[in-house]
Design a binder for these strands. Structure first.
Ligand SMILES: [Zn+2]
Length: 354
DNA sequence: CGCCTTTGACCGGCGC
DNA sequence: GCGCCGGTCAAAGGCG
């Protein structure tokens, strides 16, 4: 089977700790990305839907330069296919003042449409034909080309995309008896509690054969919710914690009280600029950083609508406060194998499969 | 009291 | 089939 290999690791850790082999075939069918897929993917697991980068950040351009993007890249697609997927990247934590960006793949593998639902501006982006996977997935630094204006924008690998696909893999894993999505985060943290916004009750603890550390089992406290997670120390480096999520929350994210006094948003300006500067260095293909939050909806008509996963619906409480820092950490340890230094290609250690 | 963790028992899948 | 291993149950206790 044709697969892509990714490694889960920290930039500080060599060799990689885990590998992910992702079948490319499962993503070739656009019908694969339906409601079930997105509901039962990573975004249904924890509140990471709105983590990550806006399209502008995603493109390596500061948000203030949005108009610049729209001026430069502006050929418009006349119509959308009936089954167009609207992949939404709301960027910074959902908040009304943030632009809502939709990436709208089409049946034409060379074309992606981006829509800002605030301004209702739509831009058509031509993508190089070297894309491997389906329309809303850019697995390895795809390029957006605008031939008319003779510019090329190189996209970084989006870790959230990998997470999405990895979760999908787990979803399709036969050993995953309940067809539940499963995904593991590797985070450097002293505490084993990954603040993911949900409330968990511990229901078990196990000593493991191959690890001196114990594995803790948690279940979501919301009644009727079958979401679970387990947490253990990383065998290779105990300063890392492995958090594996399984199942889907049947409810909204419980509000976190009290809301922090500072401004909303995943990144403040300084973090953002540091991220962006990191992003520039990444263009050499060394590593990638925080993933682009994304949410997609399967549409049956031609309308361009955005469905924001965590839109702030007026309450003002829908803030994930303490998650600010973690939002970055969640994905920073995931690195695309094909964009990493060559020595990783021939892994000297047989990586553990997830 | 309500809700949590603790902890040994239980149990099912899988490899030998 | 049997025993190991890991996931879950549930009784009991902790804590505010
Ligand atoms: Zn839940």
């Amino acid at each position: 089977m044709n697969t892509l290999s990714f490694f889960l690791l920290s930039p500080k850790l060599s060799p990689p700790l885990f590998s992910l082999s992702i079948p490319t075939t499962i993503t070739n069918d656009i019908n694969f990305f339906n409601d079930t897929f997105f509901d039962k993917s990573l975004f249904g697991l924890i509140n990471v839907a709105d983590f990550g980068l806006s399209l502008y950040e995603w493109l390596g351009i500061a948000e203030e330069d949005a108009s610049l993007v729209e001026r430069r890249v502006k050929h418009l697609l006349p119509s959308l296919p009936p089954n167009a997927i609207i992949l939404e990247s709301s960027g910074i934590v959902a908040h009304s003042q943030n632009p809502v960006i939709s990436i709208i793949p089409t049946n034409n593998p060379d074309v992606v449409v981006a829509n800002n639902s605030n301004t209702n501006n739509t831009v058509g982006l031509k993508r190089s034909a070297t894309s491997i996977v389906s329309e809303n997935v850019n697995l390895r630094g795809d390029e957006l080309d605008d031939e008319q204006n003779n510019i090329t924008i190189r996209l970084k690998l989006r870790e959230s995309t990998m997470a999405l696909i990895a979760a999908t893999m787990n979803m399709n894993n036969k050993r995953n008896k309940n067809n539940l999505s499963k995904f593991t985060f590797l985070t450097k943290s002293e505490t084993e509690n990954l603040e993911d916004g949900y409330k968990w009750r511990k229901y078990g603890k196990k000593s493991l054969k191959k690890s001196p550390f114990q594995r803790n089992y948690y279940r979501c406290t919301t009644i009727g919710c079958n979401a679970k997670k387990r947490v253990e120390r990383c065998l290779n480096d105990p300063t890392y914690a492995l958090t594996t999520y399984e199942g889907f929350h049947t409810h909204d994210l419980p509000p976190i009280l009290p809301p922090p006094s500072r401004s909303f948003g995943l990144y403040n300006n300084s973090t953002l600029s540091s991220i962006l500067s990191r992003g520039r260095s990444i263009q050499k293909g060394v590593a990638s950083n925080a993933g682009a939050g994304a949410r997609a909806r399967y549409h049956t008509n031609n309308t361009i609508t955005s469905v924001n996963a965590r839109t702030d619906s007026g309450s003002g409480v829908n803030n994930i406060g303490s998650l600010e820092n973690i939002g970055i950490r969640l994905f920073e340890d995931i690195i695309n194998l094909s964009s990493v230094a060559p020595q990783y290609h021939h892994h000297r250690h047989q990586p553990t499969s997830l």
